[in-house]
Design a protein around this nucleic acid. Structure first.
Lengths: 350, 350
DNA sequence: GTGAAAGCGCTAACAG
DNA sequence: CTGTTAGCGCTTTCAC
């Protein structure tokens, strides 16, 4: 139906009695065409049912696909239910839309082969959203194809990156807890790598995390001079995981007086666990998160957190991708975070 | 960088001392090529840094873009945070990925102009996900371009549709409440149209809803022989709206004994409102939802609801789109729903 | 202002 | 098995 013999610009030109090039100009408006001719061409187009220039042909001629691929975790369901990803993607989509660039959405897990789309899809650049480890198949495939890449949440030499002041964020959060008199502080980290397992981490000597934000946020806590009394790596950044971690941390005699979770979703889970255990927040335990997302279902509580400029991050990523497409060199951007006061932290009770 | 003079198949052919067509066959594997020649071509490609066939050129030649557009509400942030959309999109992405079709994500609000991408983007078909009213700008633009369309959540003659047994769903839910002895049943509907306002609806004589699911789910309640004691249209299907509606319905002397919300997100909001008001669920009020999504943060409660096969819906939509691309005729599919038992409904107390 | 010509990079007949 | 030929539909110099 679509692939069949649709009418082309040549048909229009023939019908209007002009050359193809003139017809082209009449449509694109990119050159001088007599108003009368223009009218005639447009009329012919309408008459014979011409649907406008074929975007693929245009792309071939221009040498640009007009499309930026956005690589997200394999399960969109998860990527999107997470407000952090959703809001970032929203920012990317806005900026790309403003520049009339298409957004090719490519789900791809970190391990295993890159999907066919990534290997063969038409794209001028790619944005790897979400956590990616150095050896990432997606990144590698893109490199081989020579597609310029923008990485979010990662440190890469060979790609543009949009980073975050993770480290300053958790440092600030930790200092605030210290100021409130907390000394027994536990941490729920982000995943260290793609393995997806829940496990206690040695707070004195944690393994090196493959994921940059995990590494940086941990470093921030240490910057504030704190060695956590307990540290737990969740399988994923999900509410359910937060609940599980919360139980492991709070349902014990030597309960910490404060918990820092490296994401709001995890912090929310810890809060729910505290509620289930009959603990009052913040009287019995203080809980801090990271991201500053809006979690209306946590009402009446609002997480004490650190906001990252998610929409802006998306804008920056899209902008970086567009720049690379235009031949720009990969730049490395670092976005600031700002403390967001909430109801879930308070002075330590003795 | 990308648009510059990259190496082409012709370069490879020249280097390998074969014709372009042979080189092409060596890459696509779509014809008989002597293993030796094939090796030689591949070696040349590697040597001169050929990155593989240009997807745009291939598309032009094939007459297929290899891309399906997926139109979602203007704010991705909202579309995705909603588990219903997220899971549907996940299903679409899976199926499209399996067929090696690209997913072009296009945010577009229902009113106002269709975005440039929809007017000029390369696509073989489009899926309109999320609520769409008959006059929809996106749908109209697509029609004018002659792009075949699949509509979710809508009744359309001129497009393939993937529907849901909404009506049977709410009818069943209502009957179950009746069986539990409820007679004072209130309803929180879905939005009736794109206006986004919260308002009470005349239960005896509701306006006609532009959105199909709203219409059908209401009809289902009536099918069960119930006229709601109160009916409230939310501005959107969001937890916050559910909370607001919950307060309006439950914080009054003639409080209903049961509330049916037309989405789980709204039902969750009503449940939170009930908790805030100190009402026990289901002892003081029963609450039923629709969709059957997983809301871990509602623990320990699980909404009594009706599950729709979201992933399957996504699969079906993608499949329908692929069929249309291949010249198939628009079909109209109706997917079943299944009751999902939960903890939020119980016998009426007197 | 308008037209002729030359491809963008690839694939698919069709000969050989 | 391999090469020749002919476009896919459009844009863009460059003459006129």
């Amino acid at each position: 139906v679509r692939g069949a013999n649709r009418t082309t610009l040549a048909d229009v030109a023939a019908d209007a009695g002009v050359s193809v090039s003139t017809a082209s100009l009449a449509f694109s408006g990119a050159g001088p065409v007599a108003p009368a001719t223009r009218e005639r061409v447009l009329a012919s187009a309408a008459r014979i049912g011409y649907r406008g220039p074929n975007p693929v042909a245009r792309s071939l001629r221009r040498g640009q696909a007009g499309v930026i691929a956005v690589v997200v975790g394999d399960r969109l369901q998860r990527s999107f239910t997470d407000p952090v990803s959703a809001q970032t993607l929203d920012g990317i989509a806005q900026e790309l839309g403003d520049r009339e660039l298409g957004l090719l959405l490519v789900p791809s897990d970190t391990f295993g082969d890159a999907p066919a789309l990534l290997r063969h899809g038409a794209m001028d650049a790619a944005i790897i959203a979400g956590l990616s480890a150095p050896g990432d198949a997606a990144l590698q495939t893109l490199r081989e194809r020579g597609v310029p890449v923008v990485c979010l949440e990662a440190t890469r030499r060979d790609a543009a990156t949009i980073g975050l002041e993770d480290r300053a964020g958790t440092a600030e959060l930790t200092r605030r807890l210290l100021a409130l008199g907390h000394s027994r502080i536990a941490v729920v980290t982000l995943p260290f790598g793609p393995q997806r397992r829940r496990r206690f981490i040695d707070p004195e000597d944690p393994p090196r995390a493959a994921y940059t934000p995990t590494r940086n946020r941990w470093a921030g806590v240490r910057d504030a001079g704190v060695v956590p009394v307990l540290a737990l790596e969740p399988a994923m950044s999900l509410v359910e995981e937060g609940v599980a971690c919360g139980h492991l941390l709070l349902d014990r005699a030597d309960r910490p007086t404060a918990v820092i979770a490296f994401s709001d979703l995890l912090a929310a889970g810890v809060l729910l666990a505290a509620r289930e255990l009959g603990l009052r927040v913040p009287q019995d335990v203080s809980i801090a998160g990271f991201d500053g997302v809006d979690l209306p279902w946590l009402a009446p509580d609002v997480l004490t957190s650190v906001s990252q400029p998610l929409t802006e991050k998306g804008h920056a990523a899209a902008q970086a991708a567009a720049d690379l497409t235009a031949g720009g060199t990969p730049r490395h951007l670092l976005l600031p975070v700002t403390p967001r006061p909430g109801t879930t932290t308070g002075p330590v009770r003795r």
